[in-house]
Structure formats: C-alpha cells, structure tokens
C-alpha cells in the first residue's frame, strides 16, 4: 500500500548532532558495509578503482562553511540519510506499492521485489535520500537498519543502526521520537532539534541539533580598547628596514 498511515504510535528515527560531528565519514563506511551484505540488494559500485568511480550510498556526509556577520567562518559537517518523514512524498508517488511506511514503527522501506525502478520516489524526495542502484536497478534507501534493531541474534548493544553504533564522536542518536519521554525526544527538546526543509511539508522524523554558539574572547578590561597599541612604529633594525624599503 502506498497510502501513508494516518499516524504511527512509534516514530523511530535518528537525531544528528551537528555540534559534535567531526566529519570522519565512519558512518558512511559502516552503513555501506552493513547494508551491502545484509537486507536487500547489495550497494554496488561502478568503476570503483578506475578514473570515474561512483556507487550507491544510503548515507552521505556533506561539509558546509558558514560565515557569520562577524568573526571566523565555521565548518559544519552534515551527515544526511533518509529522514523517515511522517508525510513521506516518496511513498505516495510509488505506482506499485513497493515503497511503504510501516505502521508499527514509522520506518520507510522499499519492497525490492515490487520495485520497477521508475525512479519517481527519488524525484519526490527533497533530501536525496533515495538512490537507484545501477547494478540491481532497484531503489535503495536507509532502512534504519531494520535487520539490526530487532535482531535478537546480536548483542543488545549492537541493536541500533550501524551508523549510530559506529560514530566515534557520539554525534548520532537513535530512538523513538514519538515518545516525548525518550532520550532522543528530550535531547531534541533541550537542544532545539530542527527539521530540514520544513517548507516542503514532509514532517521529517529525524532531527538535527544545531551547532552550539561559539565562545567569544572575554573582555579583560573595559578600557582596553581605548589604550594605544604597544608598538605603533617599528624601531631598531626593523624600523630602519621599514624606512629603507619605503624610500625605494
């Protein structure tokens, strides 16, 4: 069924801390590793060791430079994967019912045996979360590691998405965003979690935590700005050099 559920009680998703992410891309590699050998078709690469490599990834890390009105620019690493939207446009456009949003936990999945590879769901997604695999010709997307999080054959500590388990900085959090008392919901409330492209009306479940404000240098003395600089003109050898060069 490609109509969306009215509402889902559970809203499993990720909270990504842009203040903490160091841009190491470990989540990208661990995602590719887990998802290429587990649920669904593998994530193929084309010309991986050649001149023009490309491949299917479910998670990619962008880096943005943000220049404030005053002060130094900030570099912010920005992991991006499926946001498991409540009003997922990728689901309703699917002509075959291959794309669906699970009623029990809100995860957006693709039933690959029903996918005709028309690509319309990727057209409908504003976030670039869906990629057509060039080898298998079916649509691939983040499954929130549905084959890990309920998997009783692996240790309990591993029952989180691969990217969350891997992140060395602790910038990725997994939990139920439909439960206001969950750790992730509290983190979102405390830090002011953000929706990407809210004007698209997709109501993403995944939230992004904004970078914390940067420290400013403390003012040592209120009179300091009024004092003359210690050395206005160079003296000695540098003073002579300065004058000599001026005359040239």
């Amino acid at each position: 069924m490609t109509t969306l559920p009215e509402t889902t009680h559970k809203k499993l998703g990720l909270v990504i801390d842009l203040d903490t992410c160091v841009g190491c891309h470990a989540c990208v590699i661990s995602c590719k590793g887990w998802n290429t050998e587990n649920y669904g078709a593998p994530l193929s690469d084309q010309d991986p060791y050649g001149a023009d490599p490309s491949g299917t990834f479910l998670n990619r890390v962008h880096s943005y430079e943000v220049q404030p009105a005053e002060g130094a620019a900030q570099l912010i690493h920005f992991p991006k994967s499926c946001l498991h939207c409540e009003d997922a446009p990728c689901v309703t456009v699917c002509p075959t019912g291959a794309s669906y949003k699970r009623v029990e936990d809100g995860i957006v999945l693709v039933n690959e045996s029903d996918c005709i590879g028309c690509g319309l769901c990727a057209w409908a997604c504003p976030y670039g979360a869906r990629e057509m695999d060039a080898e298998e010709k079916v649509m691939k997307k983040c499954t929130l590691c549905v084959d890990r999080i309920y998997n009783e054959n692996i240790p309990e500590v591993d029952r989180v998405p691969s990217c969350v388990r891997t992140c060395p900085a602790g910038a990725r959090h997994f939990g139920d965003l439909g439960d206001p008392d969950s750790a992730v919901s509290q983190l979102v409330a405390e830090r002011g979690g953000m929706d990407l492209m809210p004007e698209q009306g997709t109501k993403p479940v995944n939230k992004y935590l904004p970078p914390r404000p940067k420290d400013a240098l403390p003012e040592f003395d209120v009179l300091a700005p009024f004092l003359d600089p210690v050395i206005a003109e160079p003296k000695g050898f540098l003073g002579w050099l300065d004058k000599a060069l001026e005359k040239l």
Binding site: V28, S54, G55, H62, Y64, V66, A69, E131, M132, P210
Partner: peptide, 26 residues
C-alpha cells in the same frame, strides 16, 4: 541552502566539500 541545512541563522551557508569526489546517481 539555508532552509536545506537550517544553518542560515548562524550566517551565510556555502557548500565547502561534497560527500564524494566523484559523481553519483543524485
């Protein structure tokens, strides 16, 4: 780009580095 990244309230956002040096499906 400001609404896409939600970083516009800090300053002007510019794409500094793409996720991969190569191209991709998107």
């Amino acid at each position: 780009l400001a609404s896409a990244t939600q970083l516009g309230n800090i300053g002007t956002v510019r794409s500094f580095e793409p996720p991969h040096t190569g191209t991709n499906y998107l």
